[in-house]
Design a protein around this nucleic acid. Sequence first.
DNA 1: CTGTTAGCGCGTTCAC
DNA 2: GTGAACGCGCTAACAG
Lengths: 344, 344
Amino acid sequence: MAKAGSTGVRPTIRMVAELAGVSTATVSYVLSGRRGDGGPGVSDPTAEKVKAAAERLGYRPNQAARAIRTGRTNTVILSLTMLSDPWSLSVIEAVQKAAGPLGITPMILGDADWVKVLGTQNADAVFVDAVREDQRDDLRKLAERGTTLVVFDETLDPDGFDVVRSIAGPGCRMAVEHLLHGHARLACLTPATVGGTSGGSRYRAYSGALATAGITEREDYVGLFDGTTAGAYAAATRLLSMPDRPTAIYATTDYAAVSAINAAQRLGLEVGADVDIIGVGNTVEGERMSPSLSTVGPVDFFDKLARRLLKRATDHVDPAVLDFPWHLFVRESAPHRSAATRLY
Amino acid sequence: MAKAGSTGVRPTIRMVAELAGVSTATVSYVLSGRRGDGGPGVSDPTAEKVKAAAERLGYRPNQAARAIRTGRTNTVILSLTMLSDPWSLSVIEAVQKAAGPLGITPMILGDADWVKVLGTQNADAVFVDAVREDQRDDLRKLAERGTTLVVFDETLDPDGFDVVRSIAGPGCRMAVEHLLHGHARLACLTPATVGGTSGGSRYRAYSGALATAGITEREDYVGLFDGTTAGAYAAATRLLSMPDRPTAIYATTDYAAVSAINAAQRLGLEVGADVDIIGVGNTVEGERMSPSLSTVGPVDFFDKLARRLLKRATDHVDPAVLDFPWHLFVRESAPHRSAATRLY
DNA sequence: CTGTTAGCGCGTTCAC
DNA sequence: GTGAACGCGCTAACAG
């Protein structure tokens, strides 16, 4: 096996040029396959020599150096607050699938502290998961300084950056109203922490729909939990163990709904018959599970989001709002109920 | 509110220098708080002027440019194959906690294709989750070219890079033997896919321990699943629904064990009494759940791993092997069983 | 048509 | 406290 000139340091374009007996410019042209105005520009024999030299040294261009000149890093950053959330995984998956063919690498920032990082780190585009009140100003500043941002937020207005809006309110209302067709004892399962993926609007949809239906909200029918799956499971168990337990649960996130289904089954209740459960978010997990999860959510959200992010990373497009209409997905965990099958 | 000189472009060190009426060198020295050989070097008034100018422009040094000169990016990369795995989340959490105070940003690479990325992207250190057969050579090449690598692998030898070994075999054997003290009908719950977090060694510990104990392995007591939580749940349900169901389950990962506990409870079995369940990995989830999960695993794994990664990122240390001894954690889901309490 | 020269764009750092 | 070189890869303008 050839030693391939291993010197212990990273090979530079100059080393390749020297080994091939050409200038660094030629190497650059050959390896990036581009030349001023379209003409081929480099003869085949020279190109071969260069390629061979690069191969021998194991040369790979330094992205940092390239970025300084071109302003492009071939990188997008995904700032995701709740990495354990299936929602985040869906974002990652969609972006990776779309980025691969473009030669763009998605880097994930698990920290919530994107402001500090984005000040010094560069990427062709950045997706931001959640914006705290005190971070709103920073968004504008970053955008002004040339950072291409795509922000997920329901209330923010675009101001040099994209805003992705997937307005939950009306959709959640649809979910609650779907349950109200067949139920009067309707509970709500929601994380106590405001912010994150599920805002207060999802809970308000519950209050609002109950009020409109003329049903008084019961405090003991609101299952608050700590944001974890286990917490959701425990809260659901409490709800379903009550003497006059609810006959339906509206969970403000799909993963909580999944936990609720598990809890119901654990208690010997048949989901979709003894108790109906609906989620929010339209995640794939819910679709695949058994019984399949009824939910509300946007259509094709992640793919469209990924496409937009990469479009902004590659082309020079004006910032805009992306609005995602929500649909109701009626599946097994909360089927349609007519007057004949309603539970009251 | 001051416009703060918003020009639509990123402020450079030169702009700061001009505004402050000093040279770029001075700005660099002031903002990075360093000067040649320890001498003070910059007067207080000048330093103030520079800081004010930097603040006014919202200047933040460009990490890419800095990296070119210093060779340091203040970044570590975590290449994690199974982002949904709690194990990965624990790695992230530990590294983030340790990196923050050092001013180092952890970037996560969700793709399994670290070879291509690390060829062009730089980081002060890289943690790699899993190495495929065909990637072993690339490790050496990367290390030779100056990439600081910390690799998680049970069989690899260090060769310019760190190897973190958390050898599962003996620990898993302990787990199986723990169950064999009280059980004869012992099932195994394991993902079908070899590779990933759980290798074949975890399954072999089961086969081996059974053979040593003189118990014939039953094919229908091996619950294979697809690597998902739902799959594990289904497989466990099948095992526990058999007419001569096993009285104990050895799950080769903690999350599978958790699923098995859920499945058992769903079937009305009391875990720790009717059926014992043990996991592998010693994840926090298992410790916190109820009943708490008996498991085997290394002690303090994630913190030590994080410390090592960051030490290699900041200092110049020689590569080494990090070996983590495994312990048996006897908790509620599989308690100690004496002759009096054994289930056969 | 093929290849080179020279200088850019960053922040850092050495010698004055 | 500064001027200028440095490290990297890219590319406009030029020479053969």
